[in-house]
Design a protein around this nucleic acid. Sequence first.
DNA 1: CTGAAAGCGCTAACAG
DNA 2: CTGTTAGCGCTTTCAG
Lengths: 339, 339
Amino acid sequence: MDRPVTLAEVAKLAAVSTATASRALRDDPRISDTTRDLVREAAAQLGYVPNLTARALRRRKTDVIGLLVPTVTDPMHGQTVTGVQQEVADTGFTVLFAASAGDPDQEAEAIRLFAQHRAAGMILVASVLRPQEARDVAGSDRLVFVLPDHVSLAGYQQDPAEGTIRADDPAGVTAEVQHLIDQGVRRLAFMSGRLLASHVTRRTVAEGAVAESHLRDPLTIYPPLGSAFTVPRSLLSRIERDRPDGLICYDDFTALRMIHALKEAGIRVPDDVAVCGFDDVPFARMASPSLTTVAQPTERMGRLAVRMLLECLDTGTMPPSIVEPVSFVPRESTRRPPP
Amino acid sequence: MDRPVTLAEVAKLAAVSTATASRALRDDPRISDTTRDLVREAAAQLGYVPNLTARALRRRKTDVIGLLVPTVTDPMHGQTVTGVQQEVADTGFTVLFAASAGDPDQEAEAIRLFAQHRAAGMILVASVLRPQEARDVAGSDRLVFVLPDHVSLAGYQQDPAEGTIRADDPAGVTAEVQHLIDQGVRRLAFMSGRLLASHVTRRTVAEGAVAESHLRDPLTIYPPLGSAFTVPRSLLSRIERDRPDGLICYDDFTALRMIHALKEAGIRVPDDVAVCGFDDVPFARMASPSLTTVAQPTERMGRLAVRMLLECLDTGTMPPSIVEPVSFVPRESTRRPPP
DNA sequence: CTGAAAGCGCTAACAG
DNA sequence: CTGTTAGCGCTTTCAG
């Protein structure tokens, strides 16, 4: 591979200085139209490709944004990434990308790498680090947190730091509880997937909503289902014993697995038990029964994250945190005949 | 934000030259243990973060890999990205990421951007560009193509260029046709999602397999379903008229949508029509009926892509192309009683 | 409107 | 084993 063409070579061909060539290629208004075209032509002729590392070194800043997600395989995070990409396109920024698998050490490592690349800013999706720790590792406060998942943020009690974008999970869960009660459900249960802050939040809100309702029984809490596809037999036995008639799952993945397992165990959904999820993944509407859930504006949150970060890079101050509305989506999995 | 600590400052604190400091931090064997520790301590004390842009400029090469996918929202591509990330971790490389939405212009633009960043190599997933064109735009032949989707590659007739990783779609589709015939299916139909090379490949192979079988009727080809969630009424009418008893869909997404629509139209799956997909997305097993499909080793292909690229960067020559085996996964959607 | 010169932070010869 | 020196390719004062 022959060495790439440099600006000096372009300048030489155009018979101008490198300074002029540099300005011409970036549409500096001080350059005359004639020389600009001259330089452009020379660049095109030589197949000049600007060297962004040199540029970054000289300008002491890059046009790179670090994007960190637990994994892109999760449909929600995938959509967030898509939103980020869409909003980044045509801004001149490029995305440095890393996946942490939800592990704090890997997260920190990725942030460190972004810092070494002198990323202008970072977007951390579902970070499990304490926000301040992330900032320390990054050596910067140009960080936007999307759906931060550090334990200290559970329950939406504590106000998050600046630059945080969250969905209104409490409103979503509350709507689900209300809906189930409206459907005549009496004995409500909750099943989480793992034990992260977001899981605790949804569970706590559900508990509160049930407690404040006219229902006799408190919310039954089942142990987390984990990430395997199969549902443990012991859990099914317990459900068969408890016989809840409404089941709120942490997310759609959990809900769809439960519906599958319940059906196999001969428990009808929604007739015996109404089930709802959370997220509104694409398959939620294709499942049978189609899944009642809460749609999160994930893609939008990705876009917002970029806007927020760019504004911070522009103005020097991070915009205030926001909570995005969610929308309740009733479907077949909770449709019950009036009593 | 105060300026980051430079190597010169570290060197000064450690009372050595920048050259020595540079070597010490990179474990150059020529440096004595004492000075190495000295420098490391100084770096730690100052919170030194190496500047990778400066390093890249001086070394005339980066430790960055460009990764381009149509979208990360597609479960298959998402898994490929995950595989890439896993394999890249701990190699010291970082991933520059872009999404093209399957648009050739956006693809070219992303490749150009990678080139400006002087990416050491690129991994293009499901690229719709002609491979040679991609290389020209990149100004490099350090490109690995995963599941390339340029029209010229349809049907696996033409041998792809070096550095290509594909799945054995023909084997997968052939297995499906055989399976359906074994299940007693007589009137087979195919439905694609769009009109890309991979779609043509699967269709062509299915047609061939049917033609070579003992079946009377040739494969019925339905118009592409597109990417919307709903299935057009006209298409359903046509199916009700044709009454195929076996339906091979381009992918799982298409299959799941079809099953949903067929059930609503009162056509039973698999009793009236056996349906199979392709990909084995996570939800395929949770659907009801669970979906017969062909599993692609997407994550593995992501990992292989990285290994291939790194070997190319290492040795200077791109390893030969490979075709990864797929595995047929029979499930309920094609389970029919013996006649 | 354009050029000369300096230097971003680092690494790689080349000496010693 | 360590230091000196030069320069990667670009942008940006500062002159003209």
